[in-house]
Amino acid sequence: MLFIAKLLIIILSTKLAGDLSVRLGQPSVVGKLIVGILIGPALLGWIDNSNLIETLAEIGVLLLMFIAGLETDIKELNRTRNSSLAVGAGGIILPLFGGYFAGLAFGLDAQQSLFIGLLLSATSVSITVQTLRDLGRLGTRESTTILGAAVVDDVLVVILLAFMISFADPAAPAVTMVILKKVLFFGAIGLLGWKVVPWVMKKLVPLRVSESLISAAIIICFFFAWLAEVTGVAGIIGAFAAGVALSTTKYKHDVEHKVEPIAYAIFVPVFFVSIGLNVSFEGIADQIWLIVVMTVIAVFTKLVGSGVGARLTGFDKQGSLGIGAGMVSRGEVALIIATTGLSAGLLDQQYFTSMVLVIILTTLIAPVLLKRIFGDNPQAKKEEAASS
């Protein structure tokens, strides 16, 4: 029953915090992220990071990205592929060099500095997706470019991480195998999304059981996410791909209508809170300048690197800044990379907490930047109220 009480606190606090955030003129997601820090171990200590919380949070982020895929126009995604490549590349090159030289300046060795650069190159758009949804911007050319660039970032960062681990640990999987797995994954989801998903929906939806439609959709979402994980790609990319595949079928609107209540009632609130549960203020006084400098570099390099990539491929100033801001959040992808680097000996324990705080800060800053850039959208108030 203790877990039920914790779940009650999570759902109530995120809804109240989201509403308060909207009333204060910010996206609802900002309040939800902050309340995770408030009720977590860093402050009140009401909620701790258990395996069950992590599992529910993982389901939440998968459903969030699945919904984003459902709301994505595949034709627009194809049209923005060049922009996505430029934005993704710009969002890796600048943070990689920025993090590397900053690490050296703070006295870290070359290997740890390079890993920090790689860590700052990561992008997680799960928070960005929710913010764009709050602002009524999900489905626009800018949001589609951000989503496409996030896929580019995920693949390149994981491949670079594989290189680093292979040099540090001779027993690690060969880089060639890592690349091959990713090629197989994207080839597989392309074929599955085109041919298999419509067939599966056609076979499962008529089953004489309750909620066969949404059950079939979630099966596809989880299968794509699992396939992504086993091939070394982030599960959120698989979930997004599943949503895109279903968006081309006649079931799109029905699935979207049914999955949103499931996601936003329980799983997505737990995901938002889980990010705050990773915050710890213990021992940060000695590394406060490291945290401040790395956070500034993390924000600036994504904003400029991805923004320039967008500008060079035809976006106006506002759109380019918005795309750069949308790539700022490091979120759960960077947390996973940080944990991997710690276990592989690429990052010392003494810097782990500081880098986690940098990741959390970028995740909090991204929605605020997006609000300032895109906050004049006439649909914003309606979308914010609906998602809070």
Rank of each mutant, 00 (worst) to 15 (best):
K203M: 12
S215R: 12
D254M: 08
V209W: 04
P198D: 10
I214V: 14
F185L: 14
V178Q: 11
K195M: 08
I219P: 02
A188V: 10
I179F: 09
I236C: 01
I189Y: 05
K202S: 12
I189T: 14
F185C: 11
T248V: 11
F223G: 10
I220V: 15
L204W: 02
E256C: 02
A188G: 05
C221W: 01
E211Y: 06
A241K: 08
I189S: 01
A245F: 07
L184S: 08
F223V: 15
L184T: 05
I218S: 05
E229I: 14
A239S: 09
V178G: 00
I220N: 03
L204S: 08
C221A: 15
W199L: 15
A216E: 11
G190S: 15
A234D: 08
I236R: 01
G238S: 06
K202L: 14
K250D: 14
A216K: 04
A234M: 12
L180R: 13
E229W: 11
A234L: 12
A239C: 02
G193M: 06
G193P: 10
G187Q: 11
A241W: 08
G235D: 09
L246H: 03
G193C: 05
W199C: 10
V233P: 02
G232K: 09
L204V: 03
K195A: 11
T248G: 03
H253A: 01
F185Y: 07
A239I: 04
A225E: 04
L246F: 05
L227A: 15
L180W: 03
K250N: 08
E256V: 06
K182A: 07
E256L: 13
L213P: 02
I220L: 04
L213S: 12
E229C: 13
W194Q: 14
T249F: 03
K203R: 09
V183A: 08
G187E: 09
I220F: 00
I237Q: 00
G232E: 10
A225Y: 00
S210L: 14
E211W: 11
D254P: 01
P206G: 02
K250R: 09
K181P: 02
G190D: 03
K181C: 06
G193E: 04
I218V: 15
A242H: 06
E256M: 12
T248W: 02
E256Q: 07
V200G: 08
V233D: 04
K182S: 09
I179H: 03
G243P: 05
K203V: 12
K202I: 06
K203P: 10
F224K: 01
T248K: 13
I219C: 15
V205Q: 07
K202M: 10
S212D: 03
L213Q: 04
A228C: 03
G235R: 01
K252N: 07
H253R: 05
A228M: 06
A228F: 01
A217C: 11
I214S: 03
A216D: 12
V244Y: 03
V233G: 05
F224W: 04
A241T: 14
G187V: 12
Y251K: 00
Y251T: 06
K252W: 01
L207Y: 10
T249S: 08
K203H: 08
E211K: 10
L227W: 05
T249Y: 02
T231P: 07
V178W: 02
A245T: 10
D254V: 09
E229Y: 14
L207N: 13
K250H: 10
I214T: 09
T248D: 11
K181T: 05
S247I: 08
A217P: 07
A228K: 04
V233W: 00
